[in-house]
Design a binder for these strands. Structure first.
Lengths: 231, 231
DNA sequence: AGCAATATCAAACAAGTGTTTAACTTTCGC
DNA sequence: GCGAAAGTTAAACACTTGTTTGATATTGCT
């Protein structure tokens, strides 16, 4: 019944994705990876020429699907014939797709954190290529979409808006992730849920609540600060 | 002229604060710390009983001043007799004080990151105590202040608002920090500044621009979503 | 079948880690 | 000024890290 992989390269990628996501790069040893993937320790270096490289490929593999889903969601909104796309629908797509993409994948709540490391790394790969191919396309696409649905917006205003929205998304993703790795009967857990009740909900509901809030909050700000100009 | 410290305990704390802030916990070795502080390697263990503990004390030392400054700023707003405190002034205090506190200290742009590690750490100290004594008081104080200046707000609405504001703050802090460690003539640097022009400004101006934006953005949202009820 | 090329493996490697030791020096109360 | 406590030191310790080795097994091609 189980579709067990036999390709050690993929077994390693899977194990690495899960382990890196919940422990971070430095906290995972090659021996740990090899054990989890049920391969020899040398396999990492044989197939990926080093731990850093394996990490890099894990990141790429995930962000390619994330990027494509985000772009796809936007196209769906813009191409919709039955209802004219507006600012709210673009914002909603951005928010929802990012929340789902980073939270719904069971193994990896913390790819925001991993991404941060990848972009930050002085050592290792140039983050430029990654940034240009993974982050920028999405950013650009949504920026031009916003301009399209509200032409009165200026480029710099869009930068600010996007930053505020993305900042909120990251924050709510991080909150969930933080909660996720807490013991449910511990003090920390109780305090977090008490301070922020939405964390008590199941993931699906949490995503919807957060998406609703960010969209509403941001739309209210946008409409108030940069109202639509009626000709 | 120079006020050189001779207490190795403080020399270590200073060196550690700077090194941890720009390289992260794992990337700094005890030998590196000792060299930077110009003390023997054994000093870390003699004075702090381990690296983890030193890190912890560094965090505490910084966040105590950060917390107190935040609370002080709020009291100043609430206690002002010449102008009645309102939502905008509370929000502005929260935003500005956090931006200044995390960005203005020259050594440490990345204490947000360090904090994340501290709160996240499965190993090491219980994050509960830290959370309760460093984060909660500020959160609570500003929450009740918001309730005070706009009584129509409900507790849960305040949670959402605070989360959105803090998320934005973190994000803009992170952006600056990311830029800070980039070579000014590199591609990454150019792209970042191009995508987000405010990063081209000096720190002081950046802080003001960001504080203005977050305050305006959030206030627009708050006033639109939860307008003041006039009796 | 046979022979490369490829893949896997246990074992070893070199370098770095945090920490401890035991000898030495300084400090400070009396 | 003596002696005990506190502080400092270089060296060693025990351990983990990522990586490489050379032998062994497997594969794919003619």
């Amino acid at each position: 019944m189980s579709e067990e992989k036999h390709d050690p390269k993929e077994k390693l990628l899977d194990a690495a994705e899960s382990l890196f996501a919940c422990k971070g790069f430095d906290e995972v040893s090659i021996r740990e990876l090899a054990a989890a993937a049920d391969v020899n320790v040398a396999a990492v270096n044989y197939h990926f020429q080093g731990k850093e490289n394996l990490f890099h490929e894990v990141i790429i593999r995930r962000f390619v699907v994330q990027r494509d889903r985000s772009l796809e969601a936007l196209e769906k909104v813009l191409g919709s014939t039955k209802e004219k796309p507006n600012v709210a629908s673009v914002v909603r797509a951005l928010v929802e797709e990012n929340l789902k993409g980073t939270l719904s994948v069971p193994t990896s709540g913390s790819f925001m954190t991993l991404l941060a490391r990848e972009m930050h790394s002085q050592h290792g790969h140039s983050s430029t290529a990654f940034f240009r191919e993974m982050v920028m396309p999405v950013f650009q696409a949504y920026s031009t979409a916003l301009l399209q649905v509200r032409p009165s917006l200026q480029q710099e205003q869009i930068s600010w808006i996007m930053a505020s929205i993305i900042g909120q998304i990251h924050h709510f993703v991080t909150r969930w992730h933080k909660k996720k790795f807490l013991p449910e009967d511990g003090d920390d857990f109780k305090i977090m849920v008490q301070v922020f009740p939405a964390l008590g909900q199941p993931l699906e509901e949490y995503i919807q609540l957060v998406a609703d809030h960010i969209t509403a909050f941001s739309m209210a700000a946008i409409d108030s600060l940069y109202p639509e100009v009626v000709e």
